[in-house]
Amino acid sequence: MNTSFLSATVLLILITDPLGNIPLFISALKKVKPERRRKVVYRECLIAYIVLLTFMFFGKGFLEVMHLTDESLRVAGGVILFLIALKMIFPGEGSHSANQITGEPFIVPIAVPLIAGPSAMATVLLMSTREPERMLEWIGALTLTMLVTLLVFLFSGKIHRLLGEQAMTAMERLMGLILTAISIEMLLGGVAAYIKKLA
């Protein structure tokens, strides 16, 4: 699957799912003073950005140490994205744990895993190892994704009131459907590359 700058950005936005995470984000900040919330948003988005950048830059070295191939990572990434997509389409009960937070959230659960979750880490690692010569494009796609996430979280209250619960659920399931197709494409690409390598 050839990945352009635009498709990489869209993929990362779908995976980080800022719109779908608004209810959990609002719940996580319930006990934070209103004047502190903007600072918390900036801090958590910055931490998530640094975490994902780290995976992007040191992903190739990690694969070499673990003796993992590009094909195995593509298949694993496809499986992870597929599972994430299924959760977006068929959300289960008790999947949100923000109500257990006491005080101001720090790193967990907003930065990790809400924004920089396993699927996002696997995706940036996959992009950087498959085409390292396009690193500037991947950094740009990640930066744009984090800016979108930042804006969505800054205006989360207004967006939630404007769209309502039903519209947000419908949007999340639509994004899950798109992500399902992307995950299947990634999985098939990994399997095809492995078969070609054997042949």
Rank of each mutant, 00 (worst) to 15 (best):
residue 2 N to Q: 11
residue 5 F to H: 01
residue 7 S to C: 04
residue 10 V to K: 08
residue 12 L to S: 02
residue 13 I to T: 04
residue 14 L to S: 01
residue 14 L to H: 07
residue 15 I to Y: 01
residue 18 P to C: 07
residue 20 G to S: 06
residue 20 G to Q: 10
residue 21 N to C: 00
residue 22 I to S: 00
residue 22 I to G: 00
residue 23 P to Q: 01
residue 24 L to A: 03
residue 25 F to P: 00
residue 26 I to P: 02
residue 27 S to T: 14
residue 28 A to N: 15
residue 28 A to E: 09
residue 30 K to C: 05
residue 31 K to A: 07
residue 32 V to D: 00
residue 33 K to T: 01
residue 33 K to L: 09
residue 34 P to C: 07
residue 36 R to I: 06
residue 37 R to L: 02
residue 40 V to S: 06
residue 41 V to S: 11
residue 43 R to G: 12
residue 46 L to D: 15
residue 47 I to Y: 14
residue 49 Y to I: 14
residue 51 V to W: 14
residue 53 L to S: 10
residue 54 T to F: 09
residue 55 F to K: 11
residue 57 F to V: 05
residue 57 F to G: 06
residue 63 L to I: 12
residue 64 E to W: 11
residue 66 M to C: 01
residue 66 M to G: 00
residue 67 H to F: 06
residue 70 D to A: 02
residue 71 E to G: 00
residue 74 R to H: 03
residue 77 G to V: 09
residue 77 G to M: 05
residue 84 I to R: 02
residue 88 M to C: 06
residue 90 F to N: 05
residue 91 P to A: 05
residue 93 E to L: 08
residue 94 G to F: 10
residue 95 S to K: 10
residue 95 S to C: 04
residue 96 H to C: 06
residue 96 H to V: 08
residue 97 S to I: 05
residue 100 Q to K: 06
residue 101 I to T: 01
residue 102 T to Y: 09
residue 104 E to W: 03
residue 107 I to L: 15
residue 107 I to Q: 08
residue 108 V to T: 02
residue 112 V to Q: 01
residue 113 P to N: 01
residue 116 A to T: 13
residue 117 G to Q: 08
residue 120 A to D: 07
residue 120 A to Q: 05
residue 121 M to I: 05
residue 124 V to S: 09
residue 126 L to Q: 07
residue 128 S to T: 03
residue 129 T to E: 01
residue 133 E to F: 06
residue 135 M to Y: 12
residue 135 M to D: 00
residue 137 E to Q: 08
residue 138 W to N: 05
residue 147 L to Q: 13
residue 147 L to S: 04
residue 148 V to K: 14
residue 149 T to S: 15
residue 151 L to D: 14
residue 155 F to E: 08
residue 155 F to Q: 06
residue 158 K to G: 08
residue 159 I to K: 04
residue 160 H to E: 11
residue 167 A to Y: 13
residue 168 M to A: 08
residue 173 R to F: 04
residue 174 L to T: 07
residue 175 M to W: 07
residue 178 I to L: 13
residue 181 A to K: 12
residue 182 I to C: 08
residue 182 I to R: 09
residue 187 L to D: 08
residue 187 L to V: 13
residue 188 L to F: 11
residue 190 G to Q: 15
residue 190 G to I: 09
residue 190 G to V: 14
residue 191 V to I: 11
residue 193 A to M: 12
residue 195 I to W: 12
residue 196 K to R: 09
residue 199 A to R: 13
